[in-house]
Design a protein around this nucleic acid. Structure first.
Lengths: 336, 336
DNA sequence: CTGTTAGCGCATTCAC
DNA sequence: GTGAATGCGCTAACAG
């Protein structure tokens, strides 16, 4: 492995000149720059990241703590991760992957100066990691919205707004009684805030519009879905106005939903309108593309990286950024 | 941040003594060791990874190149990744995540000495990365089995054996005509070797047992599945002996399969037996647990890390390891 | 515009 | 069993 010294000798310049050619931190004459660059190519030189980290106090690595359990949302998680890695590269950063259950990992990678900053996925309402993170003296961005961010920056999709947008769309189409089929019970129990917020936004919007609402959690399986539909559609309380539209916030159910409604003799959208809250590609994967408020996993991941990098390079103030939802009408909603 | 120097001063010993206490590479008296350790705790010292990498020529980081597209197999991929990260930690290594489409990433992280070794997922039959990897002078392990490993070590599940095991199970149950529903066409086209090998093993085993076989690729959607079932079950050629059993190698189809067969009036296992090739948890997630040859993603990930670490610490010879399949009979197969 | 030099924090070779 | 000294490869302050 060639070192910077070798390059300097080969190019007939000093060590620091090579360094400055690489970093661009001072002006170099065209001539010497070319000489250095050709020496670099000739020797196939590349800088040693450890040495650079030691001297510059920057590792060019971001830590990403991601939930790697085989949960319902794997595809969303993958999209986040992909977006984070891809965006990080545009800032010349690499990504070190930490798993959710590696509790000590955060402390370790920061105290050893392995990472310049941290991104945390899958934040819960009262996430126990937050107080730890708040002490770390490295930039941290939470992907998710806890009850109390304790001075940490956050970015997330506006799930409450997503539900409201979905409801307004349906209300505009004259639906007066709307059902909500949400994340599995487990998500609610561990207080994944996206689940809570989506539910809350739904209820609020229905109340505000004066339409009746019915909520149900649901596991991603056919029997669970069948049961949930029964509960929502055959609800006696709402007998006055039968449910004519659904908001579904559960990617795992989408492949099953058409079939489950067909079994009940319900056609989409003639008999029942459906809006899903899901990643774009999932919504489009169906034979009949879903009208959807899409979860822009890629945008969120990108925003998260931008936010850490901002805080690495300057000291921007704390920021909580909510990504605005947009609804795209496709083939699964219609007026009644 | 405290440095080793600070610790040495605090403990009243020399720099090197601290270093040796940490590495254990020479014997230290109980007394001074305790002194050093308490100084470490008192100052909350932890070593600087960059400095360590510079001096020792080891980063304690493994690179993992993973396919982060929203493919059918996301859950399997997640399990691999989780296994790799978890196992790496037991070797005191962290994991740097590279995406499949970051072509230059491999070259970059190795030439900059960011990683001590590399793991590559999702290897294709004639993967263009292999010649590059073969030149890298760092330990590499492929998770997958290319046509020509070019001197690289590989580890993978024995997909051909998995199909054979499934077929033998069904043959033992007196099935004489078996259908295979496999990965999407796209997987075949990019020559993901798992798809090819599973198909091949299936055909061979059926031929060897003298039972008739029908194969079909299938996208993970209800219409595609319906069509595939029609093709396999209503195949005129096999009119002599109707298909009474299926081998399914496609996780995405499992939530749909029960329903799709029910629509045709087929009960599992009374009318048709089904063996799936899928991760354990996927096979168990169904209401009626699938008889399955399980894909031990965790074992494979662990083996891969073990293999790189072996080659980092000593120079073991090249090795190609195939993980042996095992079938667990559950509720979806029966004798006829 | 360029060169000289002093660390960055640690591992390790000598010397005792 | 311990300490002193050197160098890993690079950045950036200082000095022209």
């Amino acid at each position: 492995m060639a070192t910077m010294n070798d390059v300097a000798r080969e190019a007939g310049v000093s060590l620091s000149t090579v360094s400055y050619v690489l970093s661009g931190k001072r002006t170099i004459s065209e001539e010497t720059r070319l000489a250095v660059q050709s020496a670099i190519r000739k020797l196939d030189y590349s800088p040693h990241s450890g040495a650079r980290a030691l001297a510059s106090n920057r590792s060019n690595v971001l830590g990403l703590m991601a939930p790697l359990r085989a949960d319902v949302n794997v595809s969303v998680i993958m999209q986040f991760v992909a977006a984070v890695v891809t965006t990080a590269r545009t800032y010349n950063q690499d990504v070190l992957l930490l798993t959710q259950d590696d509790a000590g990992g955060l402390e370790r990678v920061t105290s050893q100066s392995m990472v310049d900053g941290l991104l945390m996925m899958d934040i819960e309402a009262r996430d126990p990691r937050i107080p730890l993170l708040a002490k770390l003296r490295k930039p941290v961005v939470l992907i998710g919205l806890p009850d109390d961010p304790q001075g940490l920056s956050c970015v997330d999709f506006d799930f409450a707004g997503a539900s409201r947008t979905a409801v307004r769309h349906l209300v505009d189409l004259n639906h007066r009684s709307i059902g909500f089929i949400g994340s599995p019970q487990a998500s609610l129990e561990r207080h994944a805030t996206y689940a809570d917020r989506a539910r809350k936004g739904f209820t609020e919007a229905c109340d505000a519009a004066g339409v009746s609402s019915t909520l149900r959690a649901c596991e991603p399986s056919m029997p669970a879905l069948t049961e949930a539909l029964t509960a929502v559609l055959d609800d006696d309380d709402g007998a006055a106005t039968a449910v004519t539209a659904l908001v579904v916030h559960n990617e795992g159910l989408l492949p099953l939903l058409h079939e489950a409604l067909a079994v009940r003799g319900l056609r989409i959208p003639e008999d029942i309108s459906v809006v899903v809250i899901a990643p774009e590609d999932v919504a489009l994967a169906a034979t009949k593309p879903w009208t959807a408020v899409s979860i822009p996993a890629h945008d969120i991941g990108r925003a998260a990286v931008e936010m850490v990098m901002d805080r690495l390079n300057s000291d921007k103030p704390v920021e909580v950024r909510l990504i605005v939802p947009t609804l795209v009408q496709r083939e699964t909603t219609s007026a009644r």
